[in-house]
Nucleic acid binder design. Structure first.
Lengths: 154, 154
DNA sequence: CACAAATAATCAGTGCCCTGACTAATCCGG
DNA sequence: CCGGATTAGTCAGGGCACTGATTATTTGTG
């Protein structure tokens, strides 16, 4: 009695979507480098010398998780970590040559994978897909920190 | 150079969407019972006496993960596990009264949470949101097991 | 200047998620 | 009826994700 239909639950759908993506990534992109790891590499290609916390902010990972991911990338020799001489709390991150090469290689494969992943949708639907997901995710994230409400609510 | 825009990567978006959902679930539904745990409870409300593997299939979890989730629910006294007398490999699962009560309570809260989560979208957009995600997830899952192609590809 | 508040990173603990290797039970063809 | 294939579940191992507590450094104020 009273069981609900999970296919109308966005959380369930989100989990399934991510699982599907994980699977495809593993077969089409890399078994060593994961999608969050690629996101970190990508961020450091765009902005070399960022500190750990900021990288986490860019890719959407909390302080603990980003530390683990970076430690793995460091162990694989894809990035270097040095204390910020200006601020002894920070570590500054920079890709190694190997890290840059890896990013380049995976960028190509990732693009291919995205095409396959989104193939079931038409071009307009793909745009909509991005837009809808982004709006929902952004809104939920906004609830996290009440922040300064731009408009006063009566 | 050559960094890509992660906001056009479905995998990145899917991860962010799930994180946002996790957050909202934690604050609006339960800090003890997780969304996958609720999915298992829900499946057993609909079909009491299912075996572990089938429950995993229903909610989209592999044999290892479903075993962990079920072990946690068992420890909390929300379900019972008994050997199938007909097939000694299987365990049959059934909610306890406490499990049923928990499911009922969370069903209400989950519905409220889904409303908040989807609030940024209009009714038509919500329908589209489900449809697009489902199609992408289903297609990717289909790539997993080649299965029997219904139509011959020339 | 000194001390409290804030900040960057780590650590411990919990839970989800997968693969690959293994055990135990059942099924099926000879 | 018996031995090989299949199937349900476990276990080891790696990675992602969060919270709460702790440590080290910096900042900001009296």
């Amino acid at each position: 009695m009273a069981a609900v239909d999970l296919t109308t639950h966005p959380g369930h759908l989100a989990r399934r979507l991510q699982q599907a993506h994980y699977l495809l990534w593993n077969t089409m992109v890399s078994e060593e480098i994961t999608s969050p790891q690629f996101a970190v590499l990508n961020t450091l290609v765009a902005e070399p010398g960022l500190d750990q916390r900021t990288v986490g902010e860019r890719v959407g990972l909390d302080r603990s998780t980003i530390a683990e991911v970076i430690s793995r990338l460091g162990r694989r020799g894809l990035l270097d970590k040095v204390r910020d001489p200006q601020d002894g709390r920070r570590f500054l991150l920079r890709l190694t040559d190997e890290g840059l090469r890896t990013h380049k290689k995976l960028t190509v494969r990732t693009a291919r994978m995205n095409q396959v992943f989104l193939a079931p949708l038409s071009a307009e639907e793909q745009t909509l897909f991005f837009d809808l997901i982004r709006r929902v995710a952004d809104a939920a994230e906004g609830l996290r920190n009440p922040a300064a409400p731009l408009v006063a609510q009566p």
